[in-house]
Design a protein around this nucleic acid. Structure first.
Lengths: 340, 340
DNA sequence: AAAGGCTTGACGTGCGTACCTCAGTAATTG
DNA sequence: CAATTACTGAGGTACGCACGTCAAGCCTTT
């Protein structure tokens, strides 16, 4: 049951290994007829090139670059940390993973950064959905650099793959949890987002409102308030929300800055009575979840996302198929009981 | 920035490659002093052996075997399917993954099966926690075959690793969902399990009862009823449960056979009024979840588990560290909105 | 019939490590 | 001091593939 090698194929096809090699690597100078013979032998013997030997022989390194925001909320810091650890681990597999921080919220700056990345085999980028960014991504792809979008997608670009969750589904999930956790109550739900210019925030909001409107008529969703992902600002927004809304039953924070909401709720003594659903599991949100101030955390696993991004980039570089089930990023729901 | 190779290390240490090789592979015939010199050079140059070249040179195949139940509920069938697909995919990486079906619910039979597996480098087994099985696992490990338990653990054996969820946490999670989904109601909760002899079922039950008792005093948990994981029997049990319990507000099915509960609930017209929490996402449970008869599904991803088992076995065979974050199996919570 | 272009075979080198043999040097023992 | 024994160096082969060179064979064209 030992491995089938190129020489086995050559013998079976009645040609030399050189010819088999030419066929396998698409080099010119082989008659169609001979190509067919070789291919028949390949499938008859179930030949499959040995990945290890192939990569060793090719001797090429995979040069990848991850582009992350320089503004540093916990999630993005975790993502950067994962990038470093994946990079260290993959070093013994001929993979180099560089890390670049930039202002991803400014289309022009992000696009300019991307334009310098043509030397890489692949780029993973937390992308703003902006015309200039889209163009920069397309230019990279055209120049032969594979691009995957990370966490936030640019759907109508030519990026090879999106590694992240479906944000409308995340919003819907938050809505169902909200609706059921607030069962029997009538009142308003406050929605807080970082900025309505961020695609993932808008999509979550959309999914959330859709389900609440359709399934939970006793609940009304208030207009979004922007917290810019900064917890101090989010705290002020939440305080105002609490004062303005006597019949507030729940809060859904679409973006970062959970700390602001937690502090406002606990200061007002409303931590237990108001259902609070948040995104991203961090050390802080974790404690608030255990304490009961946060009722559920929706999460995307930065480790999974970073590893997936690199696996996808490698598969693209090797022209190998992507294992869908492995690369689908799930929307994790964390309650206090199933924390990792 | 090219790779550091053994000859670089040899040059730096002032010895020959043969000596470096002896040190690296723990072969005898090198003075302690020389070993130190080599090791200093290794860390000074940050040498790390090239995995590809190592595996190519060793030329060894990894022979693994997955032992799964021959009784075929959807989850186990999915697991077997994943094993086949992982096996096919890994064939080009010198990994052979055989698949064996056996009666894992009979300790003696399972132990006998395990005893035939000494030729493998690693075994992944869905294990019954039984003295004979434990002994068989220990014997395998002693003979140099790595063992990981899959889905169901044998904690006090010498198995190298457990690939699966923490079942008490799963039970607690189900309880929190139940408590919150049934908020405001007072009544009883029915508990259905496959068999109280299965470790994972008992643990889920334990976690569930713990949280309900502590956090949701308005709810009482009825004694477990056994459905043997067969849906016809589960249906009958559920019908009896419905008739016996006028104030039933929820059902938690710890094991398989969701179809029995779904049919009983829908036949009785209680699908909407009773909170039903189930385990394992299958084509059937998925439809029932979308329809609303099932309110939440707790799931362990068979694909993730199978891939993880193989990765862990490979890491063990190579004496490489295991990436904890990657191998932790999460308890997925699925609502109708975040279905994959 | 000679020139030129396709096709193919034969062979070599390299990727980085594992593992083996053999000779030679140094240190230890009786 | 000679005889062991313990180290070390030099060199080779193998793993399976990628890639390059060179020459030989064949067919077409003029």
């Amino acid at each position: 049951m030992s491995r089938v090698t190129v020489s086995d194929v050559a013998a079976a096809a009645g040609v030399s290994v050189a010819t088999v090699d030419r066929v396998l690597n698409g080099r010119p100078g082989v008659r169609t007829q001979t190509i067919d013979k070789v291919q028949e032998a390949i499938s008859a013997l179930h030949y499959w090139p040995d990945r290890l030997a192939t990569r060793l022989a090719r001797g090429r390194e995979y040069r990848f670059c991850a582009v992350l925001p320089d503004g540093s909320n916990s999630f993005m810091r975790a993502l950067a940390e994962e990038a470093r650890s994946v990079g260290a681990r993959m070093a013994s597999e001929r993979v180099v993973l560089d890390l670049k921080h930039t202002d991803v919220f400014d289309g022009a700056i992000l696009a300019a950064t991307l334009e310098t990345l043509g030397g890489y085999d692949g780029v993973a980028v937390v992308a703003l959905d902006h015309p200039q960014v889209r163009e920069a991504i397309n230019a990279l792809v055209r120049s032969g650099t594979h691009v995957v979008t990370l966490v936030s997608d640019v759907p109508d670009s030519r990026r090879d793959h999106y590694v992240g969750v479906t944000n409308t589904a995340a919003g819907r999930t938050a809505a169902t949890l909200m609706g059921r956790f607030a069962a029997g109550q009538t009142g308003k739900i406050g929605l807080i987002a970082g900025s309505v210019a961020l695609r993932d925030h808008v999509e979550r909001q959309f999914g959330f409102e859709q389900v609440i409107a359709a399934e939970y008529p006793a609940l009304g969703v208030l207009p979004v308030r922007e917290g810019r992902d900064q917890w101090e600002r989010v705290r002020d927004v939440t305080q105002a929300l609490l004062e303005d809304t006597p019949d507030l039953v729940g809060i859904y924070n679409v973006g970062a800055g959970n700390r602001g909401i937690v502090e406002a709720l606990e200061a007002a003594g409303r931590a237990d009575s108001i259902v609070f659903i948040a995104h991203e599991l961090t050390a802080y949100s974790r404690r608030a979840l255990v304490r009961g101030t946060i009722d559920a955390v929706l999460n995307q696993d930065p480790g999974h996302e970073m590893r997936s991004a690199v696996r996808v980039l490698m598969a693209l570089a090797d022209k190998e198929p992507i294992v869908e089930g492995q690369e689908r990023i799930r929307i994790d729901i964390f309650l206090r009981d199933n924390l990792p």
